[in-house]
Amino acid sequence: MTLLELPDLTPNAGLWWYFFIEMFDAFRSFFLGVFWLHMLSYSVPFCLRFRKQPLAAVVLMMGIIAVFEPYANAGDAGAWLSCLCLLGHLFELTSLHRYTFPAIATLLYSTLLGPAFHHLWIYAGSGNANFFYAITLVWSLALLILLTDTVYAALRDEWEAERPEGKGKEIRQM
C-alpha cells in the first residue's frame, strides 16, 4: 500500500481523515482522485504565474502541501514556515502582509487547543471527533491565511518592481 491510497485513517492534523471516515467505501477511489488532483492543480498555475520568482513558487507550493496533504503534521507546517525566510525581501515591506496578526493568533490558538482536544477525545473520552476536526480546520485556516497573505505579498512585490511609481500606494480595482 502506498500513501496515495490513504491506508491509515488515524486522526491527525490533516483534513482528509475525517472526510474518509464518514464516506462510503464505494466512493473512496473517486474522492481520493479528486483530493490528489486538487493538490496537483496548484502546481501549474503557481509555476506559470511566478515564473519570474521560482523560489516563491516552490515555497508557496510547500505551503499548499502543508495545508492539504493527507497525513499533515506540525513538521510540514514548520518546514514551510521556516522556508518563508527565503522570501525575506517580501517581509521587508510590512505593508505587504495584511493579515499576519490574525493568522499568527489563529495558529497559536489551534496549536494550544489541538493537543487538548485530541487528549479529551482519545484518552479522557469526554470529547469527540468533531471537536478535534474543528481545531484541525482552524489550523488549516491559519495556514491558508498566511499562504494567501504571502501570495499577495509576492504579487505586490512583482507589481511594484514593474511599476516603481506605484510603490507603497494602495491598489484599487476599477
Rank of each mutant, 00 (worst) to 15 (best):
T2G: 09
I145G: 01
L155R: 00
F46E: 00
E69T: 14
M23N: 06
T94M: 14
T111W: 12
V138Y: 05
F31G: 00
L147V: 09
I64V: 15
P54C: 00
A79W: 10
F31E: 03
A129D: 10
F20G: 00
V138C: 09
S140V: 06
P54K: 01
H97G: 00
L137C: 15
F68A: 04
P7C: 01
P115L: 08
T100A: 13
V44H: 07
L107G: 02
A142G: 07
A56K: 00
P11Q: 01
H38W: 15
L147M: 06
L112C: 12
Y109G: 02
Y42K: 02
Q173W: 13
T111S: 15
N128D: 15
N12I: 08
H97R: 05
L60C: 02
P54M: 04
I65E: 03
A66H: 03
Q173M: 14
G33C: 10
W139Y: 14
W159E: 09
L86P: 01
Y109S: 04
F50N: 02
L40V: 09
Y109T: 12
T106R: 02
G166Q: 10
W17M: 00
S29R: 11
L107Q: 02
S43E: 10
I122W: 10
D157Q: 10
N128M: 03
C83M: 14
Y109D: 07
H38T: 09
C47Q: 07
K167N: 13
L37R: 07
T136C: 06
A161H: 11
A72V: 06
P164L: 03
P115H: 07
I64D: 00
L143C: 09
G166Y: 08
L93C: 13
W36S: 02
F91E: 05
V138H: 02
E5I: 10
A161E: 10
M23S: 14
Q173V: 14
L84M: 13
G78K: 13
I135M: 13
E5L: 15
A74W: 11
I21K: 11
G14K: 01
Y18P: 08
M23R: 12
E92L: 15
G125A: 03
Y18C: 04
Y123L: 14
C47A: 09
V59E: 00
L107R: 01
G127F: 13
A161Q: 13
T148E: 13
A142T: 02
A77H: 04
Y123H: 13
P11S: 03
Y71I: 04
I135S: 01
L40S: 13
Q173R: 15
L143R: 01
L137M: 14
G75K: 11
I122H: 09
I135Q: 04
S95D: 13
R156F: 12
L107A: 10
